[in-house]
Amino acid sequence: MTDRRSQDELRASHADRDIVVERLREAAGEGRLDLDELEERLERALSARTYGELAALTADLPGPGAPTPAATPAPLAPRPAARPVPAELTIKGGVGGAERTGHWRAPARIIARGGMGGVKLDFTLAELSALETEVEIQGGMGGVTLVVPAGWAIDAQDFEGDLGGFKNKTQHVVPDERTPGLRLTGNGGIGGAVVRHPNLWERRRLKENPS
């Protein structure tokens, strides 16, 4: 019979890491983890190599913890009550602006049209349907702002800043097969586009009310 130590040393799979990432996001929504803790644990989960490393990330959380070799589902079963995520989402800033913040379900492709009021997409607590999300930006007058956690990769090779320009204020990340990120297309228009990490106010707001 395999003892606990030998189980902890077994190599984890992508599905195992996904289970832990989902539990950490749920814990943040329940108020058990603040934003800094969530980001730090998500980075460790995505780079974890063994069951032991994953188990340490959920050891202080109630409910199901990290997967074990005997209990790991393959593949992950979808949640019965969850509505399917559309293949594409269009968000229009219009006159008053539009945003997606907190917990929301991000499809693999998003079209963000800044309009007059601008568009803000905060992916800090978003539930992703793909490891790489394509965001087609039409900046318009108001521009588009994208907020991403630390550790995300940003691919802007197919994006044109136009008159408003483009600012990538995130830390540079060399992506691998486990790295989440955004692939930007379209153009910034007059308002331009900005990609950044959460600012101090956004961090404080999420700490007070993660949901």
Rank of each mutant, 00 (worst) to 15 (best):
N209Q: 03
E136D: 13
A48S: 15
N199R: 01
P86N: 00
S129T: 05
K92G: 13
A66K: 15
R4G: 09
A156I: 03
M141K: 13
P86V: 01
T72P: 00
L76M: 05
L184H: 12
E22H: 14
M1R: 00
E43M: 08
E26V: 06
D18C: 10
E208R: 04
V144T: 14
L38M: 01
P73R: 02
D176G: 07
G165H: 14
Y51H: 14
A130S: 06
V21A: 09
A48W: 08
G94V: 11
W104Y: 01
I111G: 06
V148Q: 10
T133D: 13
L131I: 04
E30G: 07
T68K: 15
A45C: 15
A156L: 00
G186L: 09
G188C: 10
E177M: 00
E127N: 04
W152D: 08
E30P: 09
I137A: 11
R44E: 14
V20D: 14
P175D: 02
P180R: 01
P64S: 03
R204A: 13
R41E: 11
P73E: 00
R113Q: 10
L146T: 15
A55S: 11
E136I: 07
D122E: 04
G118Y: 06
D3I: 03
F166S: 07
G192E: 12
P149F: 02
P69A: 10
W201Q: 03
G165E: 10
A130T: 07
I110V: 08
K169V: 07
G52M: 15
E39C: 02
A48N: 13
K92A: 13
G102W: 13
D162N: 10
F159A: 11
R11T: 00
V147F: 04
A15Q: 00
R196I: 10
R41W: 14
G165D: 11
T185G: 11
R100D: 15
R17A: 06
Q157Y: 06
R4D: 12
G161T: 09
P67A: 04
E37K: 11
N199Q: 02
D34Y: 01
G139A: 09
T50H: 03
P64H: 02
R23E: 06
A108H: 08
D60R: 05
T2W: 01
A98K: 05
P78A: 12
Q171H: 02
V195P: 10
W104H: 02
A15Y: 02
R113L: 11
G139S: 09
A55G: 15
G31E: 15
K167T: 11
A59V: 12
E37R: 09
G93D: 11
A45K: 13
L89F: 00
G164R: 09
L54N: 11
